[in-house]
Write a protein that binds this DNA or RNA. Structure first.
Lengths: 212, 212
DNA sequence: CCTTGAATGCTAAAAATTTAGCATTTATAG
DNA sequence: CTATAAATGCTAAATTTTTAGCATTCAAGG
């Protein structure tokens, strides 16, 4: 089964719509690690990532951090504040220098009404994200830690825009993403390296291309 | 944090749009347990549940069934065939007597173009489903089996349209849904019953209303 | 070339979960 | 009422995963 890759919003829009959207919002720049918003706070609006990446997550009762997702440039977030009247569901912080445009609810609704292609792009982006989330949940329940890790790294290699195959990632971040302990991640990574599927570095992992 | 409840498509539409939608499709009725489609097969189109419920899932490599989701009447599915050019991602079968309308891709696109409120309803439905899926994935990683089971049952009590609080469910289905073994589910259920949070029956569980 | 903090490696005990098997209960069809 | 198949209950061993702690490696700044 082919995995479904999420499609960022911006590339789905024509240049004119994209420009109108960006012009309608208020933009802000965040430095690496800086908080964008905390869960529960913030008014309704659509946020679009122009540059950088945004990490979403929560601190579990046990105190450990759980990463829900990472969205790359081009993606939007905050749809639930518009379509479900919900507050921001997650803490969001910047990965690397990150630029965000935020479009207020009234402006968003105006644009949505005036621009049919905008709704279409949103539908495509949301649909792909939904199916990706469903697939991820399936994987949590069915795949071994090793398989999950390999799949995650493969996805990062493809979507990440990283030069070669070297992914700049800490083992602890993989643990956060997959809901595993650091020890389990380390053990699985070493096993995968032993099998020749990847090479481990310091804050860096290289996926070996399979000759499929 | 309030959970986000998914919103079915149909109630979000005006009667006229709803009728037009249903009239544009081809409807079929399925009996309990009957296959609607298998994963990988079937052409592009939007399917809408008029009556009954549909269960989506896959058989894992280990041979055990994994249930991805259950959609109630009013919901639609197959969006990914329209917006992501993907084949049907899951096996689907009917829970109880179930009636489905299927709208072909060309007709769907026509309706979407002509009816702005249709796009809006789809956006609401997809957004709520996306955030529900994200929350579910978070729960898989953070909550104990007991907490997950209680949350699932509470959700079923609310969304299920079941008369009292008695939910007709087998323990094995809970296991499928949450990716647990039947033994773990049984153990957790007994513990929850011991705590007075629910009452177990044969193919039936009653959630005790908390006096919160 | 050191020093230092972060990241990774490693180990063993503890805890959680699954597997496998069989016993018991339940509803239903005959 | 009885037989039957399905669902649930129960148990112990095997496996997986986490927790906790400390050792080692790495890269960057002084």
């Amino acid at each position: 089964m082919e995995p479904i890759y999420n499609q960022p919003l911006l590339p789905l829009l024509s240049k004119s719509v994209r420009d109108a959207l960006i012009a309608a919002g208020r933009s802000a720049t965040y430095s690496d690690g800086q908080f964008i918003h905390q869960r529960g706070e913030g008014g309704p609006g659509l946020s679009i990532i122009l540059k950088g990446r945004v990490r979403f997550g929560t601190y579990a009762k046990s105190g450990t951090y759980i990463q829900t997702s990472v969205l790359n440039a081009g993606h939007c977030f905050g749809e639930a504040t518009l379509f479900a009247d919900a507050p921001r569901a997650y803490d969001a912080d910047a990965l690397g220098e990150t630029k965000i445009v935020e479009i207020s609810k009234p402006r968003f609704e105006m644009l949505l009404e005036q621009t049919p292609s905008f709704a279409n792009a949103l539908l495509v982006s949301l649909t792909t994200r939904l199916y990706e989330a469903l697939e991820f949940a399936d994987d949590l329940r069915t795949l071994s830690p090793e398989a999950r890790i390999l799949k995650l790294l493969t996805r990062l290699t493809h979507s990440g825009g990283f030069s070669e195959n070297a992914i700049p990632v800490r083992q602890i971040d993989i643990a956060y993403t997959l809901g595993l302990s650091r020890v389990s991640v380390g053990k699985a990574l070493n096993e995968l390296q032993r099998q020749g599927q990847l090479r481990l570095g310091y804050k860096e992992i290289t996926v070996v291309e399979s000759r499929a």
